[in-house]
């Protein structure tokens, strides 16, 4: 599924224009002057393959594939350092998250296999279902998304921590706690999905 156009040459602006018009905060991305404040402010800056600044330049350069397969869009932890510091007030966080959504929509492999994509999926599953993140289930779903044997391996590696957490009541066994009025949450999420479907 191709939501966004795929440029055939460098600096074909079709993808950039799609981002400007369709990605949350994308219109303000146009004002990026490539100063580097965002990438330098990012606590995960050195673990991103490009960092937001370069990613924005790549969007302009029409490098859709590289952008949507980058780990940058998955590694944002929403600390908002970049957003408050950006001298051009570009909402970097929104843009990265919405680009991640686009990567999912377009079915990029990285959107399924990137570790943060996996984690995000597990996180969402728990949050949407229970209204909370259940540490045990989120971790389990995340670990086992790598396959059974890998999941077992990862679980065992962290067993001691899990036990300590249970002991100190940081993690509980049994049914996940639910929020009150779970139905309301469902309604909210349904409405959000409806808005998203309409706007995109």
């Amino acid at each position: 599924m191709n939501a966004a156009p795929t440029p055939t040459r460098k600096y074909d602006l079709s993808f950039a224009r799609y981002v400007y018009q369709n990605i949350d905060g994308g219109d303000r991305m146009a004002k990026c002057m490539q100063c580097g404040t965002c990438s330098g402010s990012c606590p995960l800056g050195d673990q991103m393959d490009y960092g937001p600044r370069k990613l924005f330049m790549m969007i302009r350069a029409g490098m859709k594939e590289a952008v949507l397969t980058s780990n940058t869009i998955w590694n944002c932890v929403s600390c908002y350092n970049c957003v408050v510091r950006c001298p051009r007030k570009v909402p970097v966080t929104y843009i990265l998250h919405d680009l991640a959504t686009l990567a999912v929509k377009e079915g990029y492999e990285q959107a399924k296999t990137a570790i943060n994509a996996r984690f995000a999926k597990a996180f969402w599953w728990s949050a949407a279902r229970w209204g909370r993140t259940d540490e045990r289930l989120v971790t389990a779903i995340y670990y086992f998304s790598f396959g059974l044997s890998q999941g077992m391996k990862m679980s065992l590696a962290n067993l001691k921590i899990a036990q300590a957490m249970v002991k100190t009541k940081r993690m509980h066994l049994g049914m996940p706690h639910k929020i009150k009025n779970g139905g309301d949450l469902k309604a909210i999420l349904a409405k959000a999905a409806e808005i998203q479907a309409r706007d995109h």
């Binding site: 600096y11 950039a16 146009a30 004002k31 002057m33 051009r88």
Partner: peptide, 24 residues
């Protein structure tokens, strides 16, 4: 080097808003 000194900086932003692409 983009040289829009003084208050001309605003004009640089206008060009960006309009979609001009800057390649350093």
């Amino acid at each position: 080097e983009m040289r829009t000194p003084g208050t001309a900086e605003e004009f640089y932003r206008v060009a960006q808003e309009k979609g001009v692409i800057f390649v350093k």
